[in-house]
Design a protein around this nucleic acid. Structure first.
Lengths: 139, 139
DNA sequence: TATTATAATAGAATTGTTCTAAACTGAGAA
DNA sequence: TTCTCAGTTTAGAACAATTCTATTATAATA
């Protein structure tokens, strides 16, 4: 898996440093929707001197490449999703856990005429809200 | 309109101050999805000594009453919507303008089984992305 | 291996939001 | 009409997430 990441990122104006490799390893296949701090804490285990700036710089570089999406669902902080294929999310209103929903609802999401006069739609993202099993059994 | 606001808010543990009345007047029927700063700037015209804390306090009080919704669509700052009936939004990816969409798509938004095993859904909100007419003619 | 453009680092700065403590005031009671 | 006090306003400090800056370090290529 590490080799796959190396092959994918080496060259192309993307300097593959040990810190970046650690971030990429952490993100690869990660469906936990980590925040910048989650990434920072994880990378710090192996690279104790890493700085927040490195995490944010790398996040930015990956976003520019289209390999990382910023999720605007939690009003307190940004979450990131290494799966760049468009999908939706459900967030637990109790604990904030986020799940992925790989369904394309676009065909059903027709917009009213007054909106179509004012906007040319280019995409959509649905935030489902709900309560996760852990939280509903907890009480 | 001012009298309507006064009738609606007086009493009920909600102290109707001049600052609050100005905020309520600004929000009444406002479909511009203002930020806290937008509200602050507006109120300051008539109440030059108003503080940000007052704006945030009042926002919080209105949210607690269910009269104001926080919109999590702009990663940079919170926007607020005085229309508490559930609806969706479309945001211009260029200038950030936000439009309201009063369509209930819920019947079409069926969730996959693996999600329903993990979450009990309680609601949904769609962020449409697009380009507004001003921005598309501008270039 | 030397060169150079790019990245990492520590820490300061910035931005949006919340908190604090003291002074003030709207609304009901007297 | 005045009194009273819980709730509100205010200035400014505090806070948290993120971005910026200047310096040092290093990966990738020649």
């Amino acid at each position: 898996m590490v080799q796959k990441i190396i092959d994918r990122y080496r060259g192309k104006g993307f300097k593959l440093t040990p810190q970046r490799l650690a971030i990429l390893k952490f993100l690869e296949g990660n469906t936990g929707h980590p925040t910048a701090e989650d990434i920072f804490v994880e990378i710090k285990k192996k690279h104790p001197t890493v700085s927040f700036a490195t995490v944010y710089n790398t996040i930015q570089a990956l976003r520019d490449r289209g390999d990382l999406l910023e999720i605007t669902i939690d009003p307190e902080r940004k979450h990131f999703d290494p799966n760049p294929s468009p999908h939706h999310h459900i967030i637990c209103t109790d604990c904030g856990k986020i799940g992925d929903i790989f369904v394309d609802y676009s065909a059903a999401l027709t917009l009213p005429d007054n909106i179509l006069e004012e906007f040319t739609p280019t995409g959509n993202h649905i935030d489902f809200h709900g309560v996760c099993r852990d939280c509903s059994t907890k009480q």
